[in-house]
Nucleic acid binder design. Structure first.
Length: 491
RNA sequence: GGCGCAUUCGUCUAGGGGUCCAGGACGCCGGCCUCUCACGCCGGUAACACGGGUUCGAAUCCCGUAUGCGCUACCA
C-alpha cells in the first residue's frame, strides 16, 4: 500500500510555471486549458506564470498569430507575470549551451546523413523493431572525426544519453520509468546549427527557473529525453504534470470537423470568457465537491494539482452552452454589456435607444444560451416589420373574427394614457371579458404580432418594452397579414 | 510494429477495500409553476470495459486481454 502518498504531490509554492504555445494558429481549447491550469496553480500558491512563444518553426509561425494567442489568453482571463518571451530570440543562447555540452563530452558530433539513417529506420521498422541511433559516430576514431570536421562535413549534435533508466515522478501519472533501450541519442543541434525543440525548451526552462511543467500528454514521451538533458546542462529537473488530451465526440483528438476548437471561435459565437474558463477548468479537474459554476477566484481557492484528472475528456459543447447560459443569467446586465456590445453592433442595433435595448435584453436573458442568440431575440423591438410564418399562424388565420378584435385591442392600447404593463393588461383583460372570451384568445395572437414567435417573455412586459409606436406598427402589419389570409409577407 | 498513457451513466465527473444494489452535473423523459417560451423547482432514465487473482469483503489493490489515445522527425 501507499505507493504514493497524496502529500508527495502537493505543491506548496511559490512556483515558476510557464505556458509555451507555438503560434501556428489560433489558440486551441486544449492549449487554453493548459494555460488555465498554469494560471490556477500560479494564483493559488504564488510565484510567477511565464508566457513563452515557441516560434522557432518559422514556416508555421507569424507575428499575427503570436498577438492572437496573447489576446485569446488575456480574454479568457489568464494572467501571466513575465513575457511573452520569443524562443526565436534565444537561438544563440541555445547554441551556446549545446557547445558547452560538446566541450564537456555530454554531447557529440554525428556525421551520419539523414538519408542513410532513414534507410536504417525503414529497415528496422520492417523488421518490427524500434529504431535507435546506433551511435556510429560515437564509436568513430578521433582521427576520422577530426578529418570529417576539417573537411567541412555537415554534422548534427547529439546528446549522449545515460546508460541507466530515466525515472521521474509525474503529478498526474505517478512514477515513470524508461529503460535505456527505449531512448536514443537524440539531436540537439541540426546540421544547419539550429537548435531542435528539445534543446530549446530545456535551456529555456532552466534559464527561466521553471519549477513545474504543466503541459499536454503529447509531451509525456518527450520527457525522458528532457530529464537527462536538464541534468547534462546542470539544471534542476522541474516537476512534471502531463494533462490528458481533449477529445472530440468521436473520441479522437478534438478536431475541426466537429465545429469550433479555438478560443476565438467560441468568442465569436457568443460564449463568455468566464464561462469558457470555468468549463475548460472543469474538463479534467474538479474542486472536490459538487460546485460547477464557479468564479475564477473560487477555483483558485479550491485548486490543487492532486485533483487533476488522468484520463482524456470529450469536449461536450452542449454543456458549455448550458454553462454559458448560467453566466448570462447570473451576471448583471452591466457586467454583460461589454461582451454584448460587439454582437449589438454586428446586429446593427448599435444606434438604437440604449435604455430600450437593455430593457429588451433583460427581458430575454433566461431564453438565450449565447450572447449572439440573446441579441437575435431582441431584434423584433427594432425592426420596422416582421415576417410571420403562416404555418405558425394557422390557428389565428382560422378565426375570422380575430382581425377586428385585434384592431379594437390596438385602438384601446393607443388610447391608454400610460403605456404600462398594468394598464395594458387591464385593457386586454377588459376587452376579452366584454367578448366573453378567455384572455389567451387575445394574448397569443398579440404575442405573435409583436414578436413573430409563439414564445417569449410575459406578454405585458413585452408590450411595455416594445413601446406604443412599435406595438401599433406591428399590430397593424399583423392585421393586414391575417386579412390577406396569411400570404407570406409582402416586401 | 515498438514504447508510453488511459478505461465509472450518451457526455463531464465523485469515489482512494466495507457507509456504493455507486453520488452530482449536462442531455433526454415526465410533472409543477404559467398568457406562451425559457428560468426555477420536483421526479425519472442511464455506468464500475472484460477475464483472472489478492482479501472475510474490490468500482477501489495486482496481473492479463480488449479498446482508445499519444509518441516513435535534422516538427513543435
Amino acid at each position: 500500500m501507499i505507493p504514493f502518498s497524496p502529500m508527495s504531490t502537493h505543491i506548496q509554492g511559490p512556483v515558476r510555471v510557464r505556458f509555451a504555445p507555438s503560434p501556428t494558429g489560433f489558440l486551441h481549447v486544449g492549449g487554453a486549458r493548459t494555460a488555465i491550469y498554469n494560471d490556477l496553480l500560479r494564483q493559488s500558491v504564488g510565484g510567477a506564470f511565464i508566457l513563452r512563444i515557441e516560434d522557432t518553426d518559422k514556416e508555421r509561425s507569424n507575428e499575427a498569430m503570436t498577438r492572437q494567442i496573447q489576446s485569446a489568453l488575456a480574454w479568457i482571463g489568464t494572467v501571466w507575470d513575465e513575457g511573452p518571451f520569443l524562443q526565436s530570440e534565444r537561438l544563440e543562447r541555445h547554441r551556446e549551451r549545446a557547445a558547452e555540452l560538446l566541450a564537456n563530452g555530454r554531447a557529440y558530433r554525428c556525421f551520419c546523413t539523414a538519408e542513410e539513417l532513414e534507410g536504417r529506420r525503414k529497415a528496422a521498422e520492417a523488421a518490427g523493431s524500434a529504431f535507435l541511433y546506433p551511435r556510429t559516430c560515437l564509436a568513430r576514431p578521433q582521427e576520422e572525426l577530426d578529418a570529417l570536421l576539417a573537411a567541412g562535413a555537415p554534422f548534427v549534435v547529439r546528446l549522449r544519453m545515460p546508460d541507466d533508466h530515466v525515472r521521474f515522478d509525474d503529478i498526474v501519472r505517478g512514477a515513470m520509468d524508461f529503460p535505456p533501450e527505449a531512448l536514443d541519442d537524440f539531436i540537439l543541434l541540426r546540421s544547419d546549427g539550429s537548435p531542435t525543440y528539445h534543446m530549446s525548451v530545456v535551456v529555456d526552462d532552466i534559464d527561466m527557473g521553471i519549477t513545474h511543467v504543466i503541459r499536454g500528454e503529447d509531451h509525456l514521451s518527450n520527457t525522458p529525453k528532457h530529464v537527462p538533458l536538464f541534468r547534462a546542462l546542470g539544471g534542476t529537473v522541474p516537476t512534471f504534470a502531463h494533462l490528458p488530451l481533449i477529445l472530440g465526440p468521436d473520441k479522437k483528438r478534438l478536431s475541426k470537423r466537429y465545429g469550433a476548437t479555438s478560443v476565438e471561435e467560441f468568442r465569436n459565437e457568443g460564449i463568455l470568457p468566464q464561462a469558457l474558463y470555468n468549463f475548460l477548468a472543469l474538463l479534467g479537474w474538479n474542486p472536490g465537491d459538487d460546485r460547477e459554476v464557479m468564479t475564477r477566484e473560487e477555483m483558485i481557492a479550491a485548486f490543487t494539482v492532486e485533483r487533476l484528472n488522468d484520463s482524456a475528456a470529450v469536449f461536450d459543447r452542449e454543456k458549455l452552452w448550458w454553462m454559458n447560459g448560467q453566466y448570462i443569467l447570473r451576471l448583471s446586465l452591466q457586467e454583460l454589456w461589454p461582451h454584448l456590445e460587439p454582437f449589438v453592433e454586428q446586429a446593427g442595433l448599435a444606434g438604437e435607444d440604449r435604455e430600450r435595448l437593455q430593457a429588451a435584453l433583460e427581458l430575454h436573458r433566461t431564453r438565450a444560451t449565447t450572447l449572439k442568440e440573446l441579441v437575435e431575440l431582441v431584434q423584433p423591438y427594432f425592426r420596422s416589420e416582421l415576417t410571420y410564418d403562416p404555418a405558425a399562424c394557422a390557428k389565428f388565420l382560422k378565426d375570422a373574427s380575430l382581425p377586428d378584435l385585434l384592431d379594437t385591442l390596438r385602438a384601446r392600447f393607443n388610447a391608454l394614457p400610460a403605456f404600462t404593463k398594468e394598464a395594458l393588461e387591464a385593457a386586454l383583460r377588459a376587452l376579452s371579458e366584454e367578448k366573453g372570451a378567455k384572455a389567451g384568445v387575445l394574448i397569443h395572437p398579440t404575442r405573435m404580432a409583436l414578436s413573430a414567435s409563439t414564445g417569449g417573455p410575459p406578454l405585458f412586459d413585452l408590450i411595455e418594452v416594445m413601446g406604443r409606436e412599435a406595438t401599433d406598427r406591428h399590430m397593424g402589419r399583423f392585421l393586414a397579414f391575417l386579412r390577406e389570409g396569411g400570404k407570406p409577407a409582402e416586401g
